[in-house]
Design a binder for these strands. Structure first.
Length: 263
DNA sequence: GTTCTCGGCCG
DNA sequence: CGGCCGAGAAC
């Protein structure tokens, strides 16, 4: 049987290629090609392989069947998707596909550290590392001055946070408050309460609860919730309008295309 | 349940 | 025609 898994020099070390001949049916004689990752996961198509490797390997001229890089397969300049040109410019890692990436369901993609097994090394496991990473006190200060900008480099209006949210810590302005809260939401699934110890207000350097943002304890009122619901509603309407406009524009464009070809 | 295999769709 | 993937067969 063709059960041989051969090394594949065109891929990173440890990847294996296998070719299986079909031995019955209408397609007898045809062959299927599979690849195996260093961890043994099986891949049966180029898109599947490409999805897994993300930006770490350019499969543009990779020939799946032979397992070799084919320079002839270059020059296939497909019309790039809009999302390619806009948000994902070259150089920056694309967190949607770049490895290593947490394969958990979260819209906030987070890079992870990949620890690989080396023949002569023992991989240390350090359960403390995951939960007890030392963190700098008041690190949020570094986020000061971060703003979002629209395409014309006009600064976008900052969010108006509810009055109940108040910053805490050295030079407790509101400038890093939003960043602090947003970061806290992304880094832990625990509820965000703010600094509940009143001692933290007097001397945050000593009494700070580092798992909570630099924010005084707060309560969420019914009105806060109602206002938030309204904002979400308005945002959805804006999105709906934008999608409608985009759809119409695309329809007009394709209509113009087909007419242009006919003429 | 997982893995293997071939059919068949679609570009 | 061949790449890709669904789904039944086999385990």
């Amino acid at each position: 049987m063709e059960r041989k898994r051969t090394d594949c020099p065109a891929l990173p070390p440890g990847w294996k290629k296998e070719e299986v001949i079909r031995k019955s049916g209408l397609s007898a004689g045809k062959s299927d090609v599979y690849y195996y990752s260093p961890t043994g996961k099986k891949f049966r198509s180029k898109p599947q392989l490409s999805r897994y490797l993300g930006n770490s390997v350019d499969l543009g001229c990779f020939d799946f069947r032979t397992g070799k890089m084919m320079p002839s397969k270059m020059q296939k300049n497909k019309q790039r998707l809009r999302s390619d040109n806009l948000s994902l410019s070259k150089g920056k890692p694309d967190l949607n596909t770049a490895l290593p990436i947490r394969q958990t369901a979260s819209i906030f993609k987070q890079p992870v550290t990949k620890v690989v097994n080396h023949p002569n090394n023992k991989v240390k496991t350090d359960p403390q590392r995951a939960t007890e990473q030392p963190r700098q006190l008041f690190w949020e200060k570094r986020l000061k001055g971060l703003r979002s900008w629209d395409v014309s480099e006009e600064a976008l209006r900052t969010l108006d946070l509810p009055k109940g949210l108040q910053s805490l810590g050295p030079d407790s302005t509101d400038e890093t408050l939003l960043s602090a809260i947003a970061s806290a939401l992304h880094m832990s699934s625990a509820p965000i309460t703010g600094q509940t110890s009143s001692a933290a207000e007097k001397n945050p350097a000593i009494w700070l609860n580092t798992s909570q943002p630099l924010c005084k304890a707060f309560t969420v009122t019914d009105e806060d919730i109602r206002e938030q619901e309204l904002k979400v509603h308005q945002a959805r309407r804006s999105l709906e309008e934008a999608l409608m406009a985009d759809g119409l524009a695309r329809a007009a464009e394709s209509r113009r295309d087909t007419q242009g070809r006919a003429a």
